[in-house]
Each structure stands twice: as C-alpha cells, then as structure tokens.
Design a protein around this nucleic acid. Structure first.
Lengths: 331, 331
DNA sequence: ATCACACGGTTACACGTGTAAGTTCGAGGG
DNA sequence: CCCTCGAACTTACACGTGTAACCGTGTGAT
C-alpha cells in the first residue's frame, strides 16, 4: 500500500549527472548575476535538469531565503461571483510570468486564525479585500511578508489597487444622466458584509449627481427577492425616481423583478443599471445594462503592482478604459 | 525602507524561554505519542509558545517531513459560479478542522506546467476537476502526493468524490415527469470545456427517461444568447418537446429568454429546470425551478474523504439528501 | 619574472524542524 | 548492593536549498 515513493529529484542528482558541484547547479538554474558560468556547463546542467525532470523544493527554498514565491490572496467570506474567478485567473497568469505562484484561501477568519496561515506560508505578498489592523500589518511585515495589499477603500495604509469603486458608481450615474434622467435611486445590497464595496460605489453616484447639481440619489436596501424589491420600486416611484443604479447585477436583477411584479416595465417606468456584467445580465427581461470591468487587464495590473512593489520599483498606474458601460435594454 | 524585520520566532526561542531543549518543545507541541513529558513541562512550554506567539515554519516542517499539510485544489479553466465559492469555503473549514490548509490554484495549464506547482508544494492531496493522465498520476504518487482525487466521472484512476453528476440530471427529469411531461429536451452548454460535467448530467436525464420508457430526450446546444436560444426553443416545439432540462441555471435562463423571445411563456408552453440555484434564478421571469446542491455538506464530505484516504481508512459514503429540487414557477 | 585579476568553479554553512538514539535519575526487584 | 527499567529529557542528524567565501588557472600589464 505505502509505495516505496521513489525519492525526490534534488539538485544533487542534477549536479552528479552534469558532473559539477551542487552550487554550480544552483547558480545556473537561478541565473545568479554575481557568478559567471561557461556556456558549456550551463547547457550540461540545464540538460541534466530537464532529463531528470528536476523541480526545486519550494520548502527548502523558502526555508533558505526566508521568503516564499507565493502570493496569498484571501477571499472574502461573502459569496463571490464569476467575475472574481476571471480576475483570479488573470492574476495567476500574470504572476506566474514573474515566477510567482498565486494561492487563494477562502476567508474563514473564524476557523483558523489567519495569522497561522501566513506565519506558516511566509508569502511574498498578501492581497485581501478587507483591511488589516495596524498591528496585523506590523506583524506581517516583521514576519517577512514583503507587501500587504488591501483592496478596500481607505487610503494610507496600503495602496489603492483595485478599480476605484467610486468610478463604477460614477459611470453608472453618468450613463443614466446622459439618457435624460435627473432623479436617481440607488439599490443597496442586503448583505452588510459588502459595505466596503457598496459605500464607495454609492459615493461615486452621489458625486456624479452633485457635479451636475442634481438631487442626491435616494438609496434603498433591496434584498434578492422580487416582493421586497417591488416595495422598493414603489417607494422610488413615489419619490419621483426614474432610474436606479444597483450595487451589482444581482441587485439590479432583483429591481427588474420588482418592476415586473408591480406591473411596470423597464426602462420606460424605471431604468436600471448594474455592475459586473454577469452572464445572466444579458438574459434578463429586459436585458440588463451594466458597467463591466475588464478582469484580465485588471489582474495583469494587480500583478504588475505586486511585482513592482516587491522589487522596490514604483507601481504602474492603472490603465484607462478598464471599466466600460455595456448598453442593453434596461437603461 | 527595508525594515530590520524582527527575526522569526523559532522553536529555539520557545525552548530558551521555557528552559528546556528544542526537542522537548517539538514533542509537546506535536503531542508526539512515543514521548512522555511531565505535565509541568508541558504547561511551561505551551505558555512560552503562546507568550511569544510562536507558529512553526511550514517550510521547515515540510522540508523535514517531506510532506506539507496543504491540500491543493485546482480550479478548472472555465468560468466558475458562486456555488464553487461556497463549496470552497465549506471545504476549507472542514479541512482546517483536521489541521489541513486548503490552497486553491486557478487552472491555467498553459502558463506554468502543473507539475512545477505540486513538485514545489508537495501537497498532501490534490483535488482537481479534470482528469490527470496516468503518467501524471504516477509522477505525483512517486513524488509523495498521498492522494489524487478526480472529480470527473471516469472511475478507477481517482475517486468519484463529488456529487454524481448523473444524479443531477436524474432529479431534473424526475421532477419534469412527475409534473406530467413525457417528451423532454436537454439544453447543452455552448462551452466545450464543461463537457466533463455536461455529459454525465445528460446521461442521467437519459437514464431517467429510459427507466420510464419515455422517448430519449432531444439535446440541443444553447448559447447564452436570447436569439440563439429562441432558435433552440422553436426546434424543441417542432419536435413536440414540452419541457427541458438545462445544463445549469445560466443555460436555463437563456432558454427562458428564448421562450419569451418567440412569444411563448413558461411553464405552459415549455417548462424549464436548471441546476445550481444561483441567486439570479429566483429573480428570473418566470422564477426558475432548479436542482440545488448543499455545498456545505458537500464540502464537509469532501474533506472527510480526503482525510480518510490520507490516513488509509475507507472513504465515507456521501450523505443522502445533498441535492434537492427547488420548485419555483418555471417547471 | 611578478603581480593583479577576472574567470569558472568548489567547499562549507545556515535556514527551522522532526525524530532516532542516547543520557540521567530514581524506583523497585532479586 | 547491583541490575533493570521506565520516565523525562537532551544531543545529534537529516531534509534541500542559496550564497558567501575560498581556490586554482590562465592572461595581460608592469
């Protein structure tokens, strides 16, 4: 049952086969700049490594250098949508191109103190949605974590890396205003855990309205339930709202369901715009207009920022045109 | 800029503070069965460890034991929905309870050969959707990976761990038949990458029909586009189909959109049932009937299976009642 | 002829842990 | 009194890697 488990291929094996010392193997495979190795030896070592299928032990490497090539990505504890999956894939690809490995960990802060995890892994960087306390950040730093990145809004501690959430709200409002609406509503999510995202988005909508001297948007919490959403729709109608920005596509779909339930129709009676462009958006009745983020360029940008920060260089600026409005029928 | 980075707390520090040897610390903290330690010493060691905030280095531990406590979960390269996130969270919690750490890696087989990853990490177990080749499995085994779990249907190589996909299709068909339908359709996804899931689900529908001596379901590929879905709906109607099982909720939503587009209505003209119960399902027009899987018990079961297999015990059987039909308006 | 020096390597150590193999010591049996 | 034996520890080694420090050798300058 318990197999002999043919021993791991180590750099010593490669060295033996190539007829050099183990140090030489290390120098060749890591392209150590200080050390010069003849072209002939380089080839022999590379050949031997490939032939044996050698892959260095991450454990030993981490132990030696004190830092692993792992970037830890802590998922939030609220439900994630398909767009997160896309972003992760892009981020992973981009990081891999820089020799870094993305590791995603579901954020169950309760089960096991997060500290155990990064103390154990000693990742090169930690990316998380929620903010860390100053004490946590200090602890990580001293534990060898090179970079701590929070994707939420407060500035100063980390860097603002994700798409500025305000921008999403602003784009929503701009689209609605351009379509002739002046009295807007905001559909707030029912889940208090996402307020880190919802608040800045709402702030973006508010800012856009204020800039145009329009009345401040009337915000209502909209659960993912047609009947509850119908209530919200009635209240918006009563206050003269003609178009609503929703926190995301799911909330927007709820609003659309509410509109249908009260016997009205979008966008004539109430225009609706979402965020994310999830697949069901274009299948809704009516098809949902939404603000989409290009997750692949976003992932690449995030990776570039992490890499830059680790090598001490200055972070690149977020490329423009990452978010765009997908115009469909609902607004 | 580069901080002094207060050195890592090691077991040697704990030993010094507790006034014992480093080995004793290891014995205490790991509850090594062979070794007896007095209660007094145990307390002193534990106290010291807590006081210093000691967490053992995963790298050193892995290097020494040759196996890490990481369970590697390889995500597929097709888009994932919210249900995957829920399952991961449950799995992570359950594994943590057994001292294992879940690590999720987006499956970009192109960027970096997967071999590099598990050769580097030496995980305790690997969970993946797609199947591995025999060579890959042999390589993992010999590299020390304790268990390889394939979530796909082919038996023999790995273990069938997830919910049998056939069951999902069967439940769909049973619900429709019980509602009085006899001529069924199957809405196949447009993405060839998910055939590992789609084929067994379709097989389940076929089996349910065959068991009741009903005609074999007529399968059509349905892209996530209302117009294309409308075509499919017309063809189903032409062949006398009165109800369709969709690969998942998104495809089902597309079918519903198609139904509306051709001026018909569900479930009277065509009943539709999906799989997954994603949030937009209950917000659709009409609300989508679907087959839901309890991700939390599934995650716990998956964790139990992994743990059992690692310790050589026999795998538990999948608890019954994990999948249930959520009846709404569409079927 | 001598020296400095870049080239192309090798030797040796450290990283932090688990654990097999000792070591000390007090108790209990003959 | 001696021997054995278990409890309670300690000592010592191995895991696989990166890298600083050392070393021989040819080569061009003095």
């Amino acid at each position: 049952m318990t197999e002999p488990a043919t021993k791991r291929v180590t750099s010593a094996d490669v060295a033996r086969l190539a007829g050099v010392s183990r140090a030489t193997v290390s120098y060749v495979l890591n392209d150590t700049p200080r050390q010069t190795i003849s072209a002939g030896t380089r080839d022999r070592v590379r050949e031997a490594a490939a032939q044996l299928g050698y892959a260095p032990s991450a454990a030993a490497r981490t132990l030696r250098t004190g830092r692993s090539d792992v970037v830890l990505y802590l998922l939030p504890d609220w439900p994630i949508g398909p767009e997160v999956g896309l972003a992760l894939e892009a981020l992973s690809s981009a990081l891999a191109r820089h020799g870094l490995t993305l590791v995603v960990h579901p954020g169950n802060r309760e089960d096991r103190p997060m500290t155990e995890l990064w103390k154990a892994i000693t990742p090169a960087a930690v990316i998380a949605y929620a903010e860390f306390s100053d004490a946590e950040i200090a602890a990580m730093r001293s534990a060898g974590v090179a970079l701590v990145v929070a994707l939420s809004r407060k500035r100063g501690h980390g860097r603002e890396l994700a798409v500025p959430q305000e921008l999403l709200g602003r784009r929503q409002a701009e689209h609605l205003v351009r379509a002739g609406h002046s009295r807007l509503g905001y559909a707030y999510p029912d889940d208090h855990r996402v307020r880190f995202f919802a608040e800045p988005r709402l702030a973006g909508v508010r800012a856009a309205c204020a800039a145009r001297r329009l009345p401040t948007p009337v915000g209502l919490t909209v659960p993912l339930d047609p009947a509850a959403a119908a209530d919200a729709v009635r209240r918006w109608r009563a206050t003269g709202v003609t178009a609503v920005c929703a926190y995301n596509d799911e909330v927007a779909l709820a609003v659309l369901a509410g509109v249908r339930l009260v016997g009205l129709s979008a966008p004539d009676d109430l225009a609706v715009i979402g965020v994310d462009d999830i697949p069901p958006a274009r299948l809704a009745e009516p098809a949902l207009t939404t603000v989409a983020t290009d997750q692949s360029v976003l992932g690449a940008h995030l990776a570039a920022t992490v890499v830059a920060a680790m090598s001490g260089r200055v972070a690149p600026t977020l490329p423009t045109g990452v978010v765009r409005v997908v115009t469909r029928a609902s607004a």
